[in-house]
Design a protein around this nucleic acid. Structure first.
Lengths: 246, 246
DNA sequence: AAACGATGTTGATCTGCGTCAAAGCGCAGG
DNA sequence: CCTGCGCTTTGACGCAGATCAACATCGTTT
C-alpha cells in the first residue's frame, strides 16, 4: 500500500502534506489553480466539523491532528467508520452533504478547497480525478479491512490492530535496526471503543493486559512505546501490515 | 440512494443492466466502443472467479446471480466484505490483482470488459471515469454502513438488516398498497454468517425466531416471504432504508 | 431404494465481553 | 489549597452468542 515514488514528487506548496495528497502528480500551473482555491481551517479538540447531512462547501486534507467519522443509531449506539490522520482526505466531490458526523478529536488543521472550483477542476484535470479515484479505492480497501476486524477479531486482536495503525501512521521510530516505535494515542478509550465495536471498559482492560505483559509500555495515559512491533503485530492475528487504514 | 433518472437512460446494449451500470450516461459512439471490448462469462454456484492476489484482466458487471468478496485469516476465520448482486460492478481499474476472494454463490453471469482497453477509455471518456468514482463512493458508503452492522448490532438486528437488503434489491413486490415482498435467499446460512460476523448456528436460530414470530414466512429453505416490510425494518434497528449495500 | 454428502435445525453448555458500580487520577478554575 | 469534572481503571456479575454435539432434510449417486 505504499505509494509509488512519483506520487510523492510534488508537495502541496506550503502544506506539509506529502503522500495521498490530491495534488500529487499535478503540473505547476495546476498547483497554482489549487493554491487559489485553498484555505485553512482549524478546530479545537472535541469540535464538530460537520454533522451528517450538513452541507459541506469544501473538501480538505488533514494537515495535522486527527478527526473521526462516526455513525449513530437512534438509541445512541455509535460506530466510528473512518479515522482521519495527517494527509488524509475528506469530502465527496459530487455529493452535497456530509455522510457522517465529522469530529475533531485533537486540535486539527485542515487544508480546504472550495468545492465548486475543485469540482470544476476535476472535470478538466485528469490528474486530480484519477488521484481522487485512487484515494477512494484506498479508503474502500481500508473500510473492508476494518470489516474483518469488526466481524471476526477478538477484543485483544482489535486493540492490537488499532495500535498497529497508529504505529504505522504516526510513529517515531527507534534506531533503525530495532523494531521499537513510540507514538501518542489521538483517541480516548471511548473513541477507541467506538472504532472497535467494544465498550470503553473492555478497551481499558485489554490495554492494561498488554501493558502487564510488556507488549506495550505506557508513559502517562496517552503516550505508547512498543518495544517490538513484531510482537504487537502477532497479537493482531493478522497477515497485513496494518498500513491500509485511512 | 436512488440514482437520478438520467443515469438509467442508457442501457448496456443487450445487457439487462440498468442502474449503477458503467455505461449509464454514455453517448452512442462510446457505447459502441464498450461493445467492442465486452464479453460474457458464466460461473456455476460455488466456483471461484478469482483468488485474492490473482491477476484479473477484466472488470465486470453482474448480469444475474450473486457473488461474494471474502477475506480469510490464517486460522480460517472468514469475513465477507462485499456482496455482488445483479447490476453491481467488480474490478479495480488501475489495480492489477483482485484484493479479495471472489466466489460465485449462485449460478452467475457477468458482463466483462477487458481491462486494458477499458482503462484507456477511462482516460479519454470523462463519463466513464465519473461514473466509476460515483460507484466507488457508493461502495464505500455501503461498506461503512456495514461497519455499523458488524460493530454495534445484535444478532437479530444483523439478520433483519441482511434480509432487508435482499428485500430491496431482489424482491418481487406484492400488490402496491401492501408492504409484502418475496425473494430467494442467494446465500447459505454459512455465507450469511460470514457476512454478519456470526456463526451459522446463530443465523439459523435467529431465522427460526423470526419465522416463529411471523415476521417472515419460509417456503422451503431459501424462499422468503415478508408479510410486512415495515415490521422487518423495525427489527433491523435502523433508520436507513437498507438499500445502500452494494 | 439405499447410501451419501451438503445443508439446515435444535439442544446443552461454556465464555468473552457487556453491564453496573465504585474508586483513582490529573488538571482547570475558584 | 480544595473542589469538581473528565477520563481511566478495576471488580463483580450476567447474558448473548460461540462451541460442541446430535439429528433432520433433501438432492444426488449408485
Amino acid at each position: 500500500m505504499t505509494l509509488p515514488p512519483d506520487l510523492v514528487r510534488q508537495d502541496c506548496s506550503d502544506c506539509p502534506i506529502r503522500h495521498r495528497a490530491v495534488c500529487a502528480r499535478c503540473e505547476p500551473d495546476e498547483l497554482t489553480r489549487l493554491e487559489e482555491m485553498k484555505f485553512y481551517r482549524t478546530y479545537e479538540a472535541g469540535q464538530t466539523v460537520a454533522w451528517a447531512g450538513d452541507q459541506m462547501d469544501f473538501v480538505a486534507s488533514v494537515v495535522s491532528g486527527a478527526a473521526t467519522l462516526t455513525q449513530t443509531m437512534e438509541d445512541g449506539r455509535r460506530q466510528m467508520v473512518g479515522l482521519l490522520l495527517a494527509s488524509d482526505f475528506v469530502g465527496r466531490p459530487g455529493r452535497s452533504g456530509a455522510s457522517y458526523d465529522v469530529v475533531a478529536v485533537t486540535d486539527l488543521v485542515m487544508c480546504c478547497f472550495r468545492k465548486k472550483p475543485f469540482e470544476q477542476m476535476m472535470v478538466t484535470t485528469p490528474h486530480v480525478a484519477e488521484r481522487l479515484l485512487e484515494m477512494t479505492l484506498d479508503e474502500l480497501d481500508a473500510a473492508r479491512e476494518w470489516m474483518l476486524v469488526l466481524g471476526r477479531k477478538t477484543a485483544r486482536e482489535k486493540i492490537a490492530s488499532l495500535l498497529a495503525i497508529f504505529a504505522h501512521r504516526d510513529a517515531v521510530l527507534g534506531p533503525k535496526h530495532t523494531r521499537t516505535v513510540q507514538f501518542e494515542l489521538p483517541l480516548t478509550r471511548e473513541a477507541m471503543a467506538d472504532y472497535l465495536g467494544l465498550t470503553l471498559e473492555t478497551v481499558s482492560r485489554q490495554i492494561s493486559a498488554l501493558k502487564r505483559e510488556g507488549i506495550i509500555v505506557l508513559q502517562g495515559k496517552r503516550s505508547v512505546v512498543v518495544p517490538d512491533l513484531d510482537v504487537l503485530m502477532e497479537q493482531a492475528g493478522d497477515d497485513s501490515d496494518g498500513g491500509l487504514l485511512i
